[in-house]
Nucleic acid binder design. Sequence first.
DNA 1: AATGCGGGGAC
DNA 2: GTCCCAGCATT
Length: 341
Amino acid sequence: MDGSAQLKKLRAALLTWFDRSARDLPWRMVDAAGKRDPYRVWVSEILLQQTQVVRGRIYFEHFVEQFPSVEALAAAPLEDVLKAWEGCGYYARARNLHKAAARMAAEGMPMTYVGWLALPGVGPYTAAAISSLAYGEARAVNDGNVRRVLSRLHAEAQPTAVWVQQQADTLLDPQRPGDWNEALMDLGATVCLPKTPNCPACPLTEQCAAFQSGTPKLYPLPKPAAKVRAVEAVALLIGDAECAYLEQRGGTLLGGLYGLPLEEGSIQTALPRLLERLSAHSPQLLGTVSHSMTHRQITLHVYAAQASQERQQVAQRPLSRLDHKALGLLPPQGAAQVRLL
DNA sequence: AATGCGGGGAC
DNA sequence: GTCCCAGCATT
């Protein structure tokens, strides 16, 4: 059998499997004409960047209910968008989603890979996914699932991004590009799993070099672990867990979210700076929380203090998990006994 | 090519 | 603890 016949067989095997085993996901809904809503496809793809499907699904349902269209999203305040994103992480996704929605509300929605790629928050993966799934353009996606499946298919233990894209481009079924992309990702997410590949359930074993090797789980090699930096910081709680003085964070880390005023550093160095900055006094240690964020391990000392800053309703603001933990040191129920004001 | 950017699931 | 997740922007 020559290469062309091998390719046809591979495509047929995976698409047949997909027609039977495709996951039932809310962003896969189609209209009477069999088309998907590009808006919903876009939102789902942004939400699923570095986020597992089971988790993204929960946010998706709520998000499209609150913001049912590009126009609705563009018209909403960024703070509302961040509130809907609260706890999901990588908040630049929400900021870019809002920025791109404003652009699309003014200039219209792109209908091609190149057009989508020009929008903030849309990279090669997302542009390929949207253009293939919503418009039928022949663009191959390259995500973590595709990387792992193709690494095993060809027994390439250390696949580069360029190599994966080339392989994906070659394999892509030009007749059904959207289905092909989802089939490859579904296979990676449900069968060709990182630690425990379920090869007996896989339609591609006959052509899979890693399966033939007998040790498919050795592909691909694990990526070097990210270095974790230990960070110590101090936060001030002025008010109580329900109504407190909050600051909006700038920069890229948790940018746009609100949180307790915070200074990086030890208690000795950061606490005085914090008290000075806020004209606060009488600090009392409420407790210490630890929070891990992929590349840093944060130890946060939380102090209650007295100051005249204006308080805000905590529940109305988008907060990070770190700030939720800090505020959790002072349960609303116990506030009456513990509160100092 | 490397790094920063969240948070949680599965083991 | 480990590795990974429908990646992108920036350098």
